[in-house]
């Protein structure tokens, strides 16, 4: 199995953790994994993206454009930014919550709605996750990344099961946050399993 998954968002949203968890889960099932992460200056509120590549014969740490099987986007505008990486029949799992850049807050404008509308128009396989509601239910504002992972696993497009991601979460994150994270993972998966937010399958 070869899978390319791009996780994008804004610095501080937990993009790196999400990508590591996918890589750990893949390795735990005996697969080779490679990632590329954004660390450093760009982290401070900037656009960040982590590339995860699973399977043999993977050389470039970055996913070549047009070859991502799925994009997990923690922010609608960042999903649109990452579109050049998506395969023609690729899946996007996107958080509905917009993060307003400081420049836009100063100048006014940007709500993310235009981005979501565009995605709905252009992307056949789109899962919109209400991470704001999930974070509220899970009891932590910092679990949107885990919620998207749950939805991605439940979509069966990640090539890794929800249980495998769950195990990676158990093994590779702090015990004290597990219960909260686990809740967010399950709630994210419910987005698809219970069809709560309309999995718009083609």
């Amino acid at each position: 199995m070869n899978k390319n998954c791009l996780i994008c968002g804004v610095g501080g949203q937990g993009v790196v953790l999400a990508s590591r968890l996918i890589a750990f889960a893949a390795m735990d099932t005996g697969l080779f994994a490679r990632t590329a992460e954004t660390i450093g200056m760009a982290q401070r509120g900037g656009s960040v993206a982590s590339h995860v590549r699973i399977g043999a014969h993977v050389y470039s740490p970055l996913i070549p454009k047009g070859e991502a099987d799925l994009i997990l986007a923690l922010e609608p505008g960042e999903a649109v930014r990452a579109l050049p990486y998506l395969k023609p029949d690729g899946l996007i799992v996107v958080s509905s919550k917009a993060m307003r850049p400081v420049s836009a807050a100063v100048a006014g404008g940007y709500t993310g709605q235009k981005m979501l509308d565009y995605l709905k128009r252009r992307i056949a396989d789109l899962i919109i996750v209400d991470t704001e509601a999930i974070c509220r239910q899970a009891g932590s504002q910092q679990t949107a990344n885990i919620a998207l992972l749950g939805a991605a696993a439940a979509s069966k497009r990640l090539g890794l099961s929800l249980e495998q991601i769950e195990q990676a979460l158990r093994d590779h994150t702090r015990q004290q946050f597990f219960a909260t994270n686990h809740k967010a993972l399950r709630l994210g998966a419910d987005t698809i399993l219970k069809g709560e937010h309309g999995y718009e399958d083609a």
Partner: peptide
């Protein structure tokens, strides 16, 4: 040929900022 994404809405600029 590259995939056409000309119709994308203007993307928000996100230069790094102080936390």
């Amino acid at each position: 040929a590259a995939a056409l994404l000309d119709d994308r809405p203007a993307l928000p600029e996100r230069p790094p900022v102080l936390c």
